[in-house]
Each structure stands twice: as structure tokens, then as C-alpha cells.
Design a protein around this nucleic acid. Structure first.
Lengths: 245, 245
DNA sequence: GCTTCTAGAATGGTCTAATATTTATATTAT
DNA sequence: ATAATATAAATATTAGACCATTCTAGAAGC
């Protein structure tokens, strides 16, 4: 039979609500920080039950469009969309074994040098100060693995911001989230040593304003650090495989 | 005040259920294709109401871990995680104006040539045949814009698969999803003409087995096509700005 | 006047129970 | 045999009650 007709998509009630509200937010009917009507009001307006509204609001929350607060003056508050959901999606793919660390590294080796190169073209006094502060913080004695990772990653975040490309920034943030989770999940203290001063050379190259030098320095850093990550992934997958059922 | 204490996270019941089931799936307790217990059974096992279970299952569905089917033999079926959610996250960021087409193009210009280069190293008879079929299909008279875009993008999907890097493949799929949505949303027939034969040179370069040639050919193609996309974004944002409230 | 406590009200969170809808399968009628 | 129908099991939806949380305003105490 010729494919003339399209199947009726038996949409759920909450899906309709979800899309209408999402569309409304994207169109700017509700600004960031603004509050949606209460569940009871929405239920009346959409002529559906509160549960349907609840499902839609939960979906909006999971998608990163709103934040739900309880209590009087509570409700759904529109928030500015961040790169959070993107990072979660990448993380899930890694957890489900759909992407591996070597694959991620190959991408990182492509992205990070380019980010550093672009950053070198956008140096200004503010960025310069932030980069210098970041590497100085790195060289203080570490408080905890968690804090240590946070401080070391800050350097990459600043460069990503400097690149001036939010798409690249989004990818970098996702890559780093993946890395952070891996490091913290294994928590293999002695083995995981991100040596202090590792970033110093990259910062110098970026601040010199030369894209070529910045790319080269970042490439060397990524390669060096990548080796540690590959070891970490092996430890991680082993740890997971041995987990009690 | 020193940050000694951590805030109590007043977790929702459904969140606990969500994480337990998700963890369970990741650990392989339920294989892809397998069915979770019914809502009523889960409610009994977790000692919570069916509503809490429902919310958790909906969240799992939204995250791409399960598919919920209705009717007898229905329920939550575990599915293999795909790149779908990732693409949705990127799309939302674009819709919310958090990333622009020029930014995306800069990334595409970085990714696609690399993909083509890697693909050139992984040519085999199967891939060769699929690529040739793809470009031949492209040169038939177009049926609809929708079909046309689908056929033209197929070429990129094959190359992404050939790259052997699923992370790169994920990014390419996201980039293409964004592109597809933009093209279809504007649906600016006469302006949007992806000329037939545009991919032919890239295919030749890839099949020649030379990464350098493949990179170069893809770079030229991306640059050429990118110009059209920039025009499209302007048309798109204008269209959106004029939408009735 | 200032702080602290308390009560009220609005809101999301959860539960229960009933009904509707969907769908695969078994049964029955032709 | 084939088509129509009934059955059963599961999700989808609704309604209504009650719980938990949180802000606000006013009362109480100092």
C-alpha cells in the first residue's frame, strides 16, 4: 500500500501540556525567573487532572526548562537553559557503555587544542587574571579529591569561555563532566595524580596570544593526561563488573 | 561561615525509585528488550503508590532507558540507549537561543573533516557499497523536502559510522538533527537547494583511502553548505520573532 | 524596638481508589 | 478458514483527600 496516511500518534495528555508550556517558554511568554501558574490553576485551564499537569511539569524540569519549588510561593519557575542536560546525556551514554574513554579522548584531542587556539585570540586583562588565579590555586596543597578535580577543571572552563563559541563550551563541559565522574567514581587516590603545574605551560602559550603555540601546548597536555584516563577507565569498568547483584 | 555542613536534599519518592531502577538497568539486571515488572508490582515492591512509580517510569522513558507500552503485555521495556537524548539536548539549546548556527558551523568544520579523514582509513566493500548507493539516491528527483533532507543526511551518517568513533558519531548525529530541524522549520523551498552531486567529490576522496584528501574535500563541502545554513538561521529567527502570541 | 515564636494559607508531594483506554489473545460465529 | 467478538491485563486518566513545605504576618516576649 502506498504510504499516504500517517499513523495517528496517540499522544498522552501530559505530552500535550508539556509541549504547549515548553513552546510558550521558548516563545518568551514566561521569562527566566518567572513563575508558571500553580498546578491547580493549570489543571483548570487545560481542563485536565492535576496529575497530567504534574507529569508535564516534571518533564519540563527534567529537560532543564523549569525548577519546581515547594511551599507557598512555590511552583514552576522558568530557568535559563544550561549545558547540564547535555552533560547528563553524555554521561548516560558512557555509563551504558555506548562510548568509551579512548573515543572521548580522540574527540578531546580534537576539541581542546582548538579551544586553546581560539582562546589565544581572545585574551584580555580579565581572562588573563582569571587564568593566573586558576593555576595558582592549583598549586596549593589539595584538600580533597573532589575539590582538587574542581580546581583543576576550572582552568578548562575558563579557556572554553574564552573560545567565544558556546557550542564548543558545551562540548568541553560535557567532556569534563565525564572525566570528573570517572575520576570520582574510581577514587583511586595514589594512582590518580594530576600533577600540579601541568597547566602552567598551556596558560603561558595562550597568554602569548599565539594560536599555534596554544594548540601545541594543549595537545601535549591532553595526550599526557589522556594516558591516565585510559588506565582509570579500565579500573572503573572492572569495578563495575564486580559489583554485587 | 565555614562550609562544613551539606544541605539536606529533600528527595522525592519517585527520584529514589528512578535511580534504583536506572542503576539496575545499567548493572544489567534487565537486558535490552526485557520488561520491567508492572506498575502495580513495582508499587508493592517499593512500598510506594503507583503514582510515584509512574513518575519514575516516565522519567526513565524521557531519559531514553525504557519505552512504555500500553495494553496487555505492556509495561516498561528496556531499550538500548541511543544518541536521541543528546540530540534533543542540543536542539533545545538551539531553540532557547543558547547556541547559534555560526557556532555550530565552527564545530562542524572541526568535526566533519576529521570524520571523513578517519572514514578514509576504514574503507571496506560494505561501506563502499553503502556510500555509492547513498550518493546515487541523492541524484534522483526529490519527492519532498523531508525525504530529500533524510536522503542527503544519510551520507553523513555513513561516514560517521565509518569513523569508528561513537563519540564523534553522536556529535555528528546531533549536528545533523539540528540542521534538519532548521531546514524543515523554515521550509523555504526555493532558497534551500542542497545541490545534487555535492557529496560526490567527498565520497571519491574518502574511497581513495587518503585521509588528507578526504579532510580537504569535506572541509570544502562544509564551508559551501555552511553559507546556506547561516542564511537559513536568519530566516528562522525572524520567523520565530514574528510568531503570534 | 528587636527578636522569637506561632498560626495560617498556598503550594507541591503523595496516596488511594475508581474508571477509561489500549492491546494481545482466546473464543465464537459465519 | 476468516472475521467478529469477548476477555483479560496492563497503562492512562481522573478525582479527591491528606501530608509536607515554606512564606508571611501577627503575637508574644525581651
Amino acid at each position: 500500500m502506498a504510504t499516504i496516511f500517517n499513523p495517528i500518534k496517540q499522544a498522552r495528555v501530559s505530552d500535550g501540556v508539556f509541549h504547549q508550556i515548553k513552546h510558550s517558554i521558548l516563545l518568551g511568554h514566561f521569562k527566566a525567573g518567572g513563575r508558571l501558574p500553580s498546578e491547580r490553576e493549570l489543571a483548570e485551564e487545560f481542563r485536565v487532572s492535576r496529575m497530567a499537569i504534574r507529569e508535564a511539569l516534571r518533564a519540563l524540569e527534567l529537560s532543564g526548562f523549569i525548577e519546581i519549588r515547594q511551599g507557598i510561593n512555590g511552583g514552576g519557575f522558568v530557568v535559563d537553559l544550561t549545558f547540564e542536560q547535555l552533560g547528563n546525556a553524555f554521561l548516560d551514554l558512557f555509563l551504558a557503555n555506548k562510548i568509551s574513554i579512548p573515543e572521548m579522548l580522540q574527540v578531546r584531542l580534537l576539541i581542546e587544542p582548538e579551544v586553546a587556539g581560539l582562546a589565544a585570540l581572545n585574551v584580555n586583562t580579565d581572562f588573563k587574571q582569571r587564568l593566573n588565579e586558576a593555576v595558582e590555586l592549583e598549586e596549593l596543597p589539595p584538600i580533597s579529591l573532589f575539590k582538587d578535580v574542581e580546581i583543576k577543571q576550572n582552568f578548562h572552563f575558563i579557556l572554553a569561555e574564552m573560545s567565544g563559541n558556546r557550542f564548543l563550551e558545551a562540548i568541553v563541559r560535557s567532556l569534563l563532566k565525564l572525566t570528573r565522574n570517572l575520576v570520582l567514581a574510581v577514587d583511586d587516590g595514589p594512582r590518580f595524580i594530576h600533577p600540579a603545574g601541568m597547566h602552567r605551560k598551556v596558560v603561558e602559550a595562550v597568554l602569548s596570544g599565539s594560536p599555534e603555540e596554544a594548540r601545541g601546548a594543549m595537545k601535549r597536555h591532553t595526550l599526557e593526561f589522556g594516558q591516565k584516563l585510559i588506565e582509570l577507565e579500565i579500573a572503573y569498568r572492572e569495578k563495575m563488573a564486580l559489583l554485587p547483584f
